[in-house]
Amino acid sequence: MITQATEEHGHPAHLEHHFSTPEQQKSAAKLGMWIFLATEILFFGGLFMAYGAFRYFYPGTFVAAHAYLSIPLGGLNTMILITSSLTMALAVRAAQLGDRKLLVRLLGLTLLLASGFLVVKGFEYSHKLHEGLLPGKYFSAKGIAGLPHIFFGIYFAMTGLHGVHVVAGMIVISWVLIRARQGRYSAEYYTPVENVGLYWHLVDLIWIFLFPLLYLVK
């Protein structure tokens, strides 16, 4: 076991003092990220639970109300997010290979796709706003059987919180992008890229569940 005195000197710049080795630091960071993802799953798990309960209470409402969601736009967004997951995964690979130029490009592309997702979502939301397909007391559309104010309440809660996560993902991707341009990452040290990648895949994964549950009800 090396002593503390030798550790203080001559270690890689990215190694924080309270870790003994870069391997220890990396595995700690990854475990931390996985635990964080577990909290996210439980967080959305609560929403899925609410969805399940109300779909069980009012199946007719869900069938009637889901018809007012646009499957082409939802499908387009699904394609966009899955593609962004691919570019993110390729970005991690670029980081592993130490290819800085490719890493920056792929992160930029991921960011672009994420913005695309939000633009499409924005169109969908403004359409809903226009039609009065809104949660709770703001719901004003006519002609939908059952309790559509609850369906749209759940729709906006789920997609809204997912949207917040997309924005958060864009912020951390931008942060990694800036640091990648500064040349902070190398084939030896790319943990933040990998962790941001894991987070982005989770954001993607949640949408992959949201899309069929909300748009493709039968």
Partner: peptide
């Protein structure tokens, strides 16, 4: 995280009267 989503839904319920 379950408390977090519960409280958010409660806030949501108060703001929008969703009815859940």
């Amino acid at each position: 995280p379950i408390l977090a989503i519960t409280l958010l839904l409660l806030i949501f319920e108060r703001l929008f009267e969703v009815g859940i």
